[in-house]
């Protein structure tokens, strides 16, 4: 049986018909063609599919699409505003926080949630916050730098 859902994605109201068992990540990727949200595992372990669900970083493989009915979702595609990169996006580029780019959207979404709740995280706090996201390329070294870079810029200090 199909269910009608309506989700506000990146500020736009999106309608769709989904199966009850369909995951939110599937709805984003297959129904909405928002392929910036990636699938890296099948056990909710890697964080590549992290999005914001009603403002909180959430692994979109742990949420059924029907559960997102009426919710607000932000994906990596919605992070830049008017062509201006989000400070985290700029930070990842500036500090070489990505290589293959596959984990990057999830990393940025997780980091955005961290900086919202903790604008001045220590290196240790950043590393703890990234515990649910796996990167296989960078060894996390430059991801930490990227988030520090963004934190400085978001706090009005030039990095």
């Amino acid at each position: 049986m199909k269910h009608k859902i309506s989700v506000n994605i990146n500020g736009k109201q999106c309608e769709g018909e989904v199966e009850g068992r369909e995951l939110l990540v599937n709805f984003l990727r297959e129904h909405q063609s928002l392929t910036g949200t990636h699938i890296g595992c099948d056990t909710s372990s890697c964080g590549a599919c992290t999005i914001h669900l009603n403002g909180a970083a959430t692994k979109s493989c742990t949420v059924l699409a029907v559960q997102a009915d009426g919710a607000e979702v932000t994906t990596i595609e919605g992070m830049a505003t008017n062509g201006e990169l989000h400070p985290l996006q700029a930070g990842f580029k500036e500090e070489h926080g990505l290589q293959c780019g596959f984990c990057t959207p999830g990393m940025i979404m997780t980091a955005a949630d961290l900086l919202k709740n903790n604008p001045n995280p220590s290196e240790h706090e950043i590393r703890e916050a990234l515990e649910g996201n796996i990167c296989r390329c960078t060894g996390y070294h430059n991801i930490v730098r990227s988030i520090q870079h963004a934190a400085k810029n978001m706090n009005g200090v030039t990095a």
Partner: peptide, 21 residues
């Protein structure tokens, strides 16, 4: 020189195109 990566733009904005995309 540590030139910033040209390819980053598509990856940080979710526009990378992997096979499953």
């Amino acid at each position: 020189k540590s030139v910033k990566r040209v390819e980053d733009k598509r990856f940080i904005t979710g526009q990378g195109k992997y096979t499953d995309d």
